[in-house]
């Protein structure tokens, strides 16, 4: 069943369109990866999917409703967006910061309830952050911070999470840890997770569906086996590469050939 759908979406900033006529279907309860070279329009597409950027043409459907007809608070109760990099100028503690994820569910004057605090505790527990509860954000490492940002999104108790390059700046153990966590959220809680990823092998190992973007269009879309072929990737990324099956999960694994940049003349 479709959870999030883009229909012929064209959008951009100012007068320049960044994405052209994009259509895609994100089914419920899946890990959906969006990959593509820098400047392909991934983040712009994400902004349309989350409703913050209005498409010039086409429309975005979230759970059967046109996203333009949903009030932003209703969206925030059902979908969380975790940006690539969040700069927080003030020394909030982890708990204070994560608690803000409950705002969409509470009116201005209704105090946060015991239930809200329980949700925060549960989320922190799940992400192994409970011991950092009273630490200030500025004292955390990149990997810990990324988990805290995810924790804030999860306390919104969303059905859909959009994450813009969550693995950027993380070492391999934190990357695997984070993606395992997202997989668990999909399996245990039925979450739909849409991610922008740069690491093709991580995308291949974890995503159920991958959309490959290039120059503002979806170039290919489907299972990792379908999208991650040497021919397609060489064409898009202009790099020589070899695609093999990884021996454990038998998913495509990409090997780059150094020094073989295939710039078009």
């Amino acid at each position: 069943m479709t959870h999030l759908r883009a229909e012929h979406v064209t959008a951009g900033y100012g007068k320049t369109p960044v994405i052209h006529d994009i259509s895609l279907d994100v089914p419920r309860t899946c890990l959906y990866g969006i990959i593509g070279p820098n400047g392909a329009g991934k983040t712009t597409l994400f902004k349309c999917l989350s409703g913050i950027l209005k498409p010039w043409e086409g429309s975005v459907w979230f759970g059967g409703n046109d996203i333009r007809t949903l009030p932003r608070r209703k969206i925030a109760q059902r979908a969380a967006y975790i940006p690539q990099f969040q700069w927080v100028p003030f020394p909030y503690t982890v708990e204070e910061f994560v608690l803000m994820g409950r705002y969409p569910h509470r009116d201005r004057f209704s105090a946060l309830t015991r239930k809200d605090r329980t949700i925060v505790e549960e989320t922190l527990e799940m992400l192994d952050l409970l011991r950092y509860k009273d630490r200030r954000l500025q004292s955390l490492s990149g990997g810990e911070l990324q988990r805290v940002f995810l924790a804030q999104g999860l306390t919104q108790r969303p059905e859909l999470i959009l994450m813009d390059e969550p693995t950027a700046h993380l070492d391999i153990s934190h990357q695997v840890n984070l993606l395992d966590m997202l997989k668990l959220l999909r399996d245990e809680y039925g979450l739909t997770v849409v991610l922008i990823l740069h690491d093709l092998n991580i995308a291949s190992a974890y995503c159920d569906t991958i959309a490959l973007m290039s120059s503002g269009r979806v170039h290919a879309c489907g299972s990792p086996e379908h999208v991650l072929t040497a021919t397609t990737l060489e064409e898009i990324y202009q790099v020589r590469l070899v695609v093999e099956r990884d021996p454990l999960a038998s998913r495509p694994h990409i090997f780059f050939v150094p020094g073989k940049h295939t710039q078009k003349r």
Binding site: R72, I75, Y81, M100, G101, Q156
Partner: peptide, 9 residues
């Protein structure tokens, strides 16, 4: 942006 995603204007 984060304000928007937490439901605020």
């Amino acid at each position: 942006e984060k304000t928007y995603h937490l439901g605020g204007n």
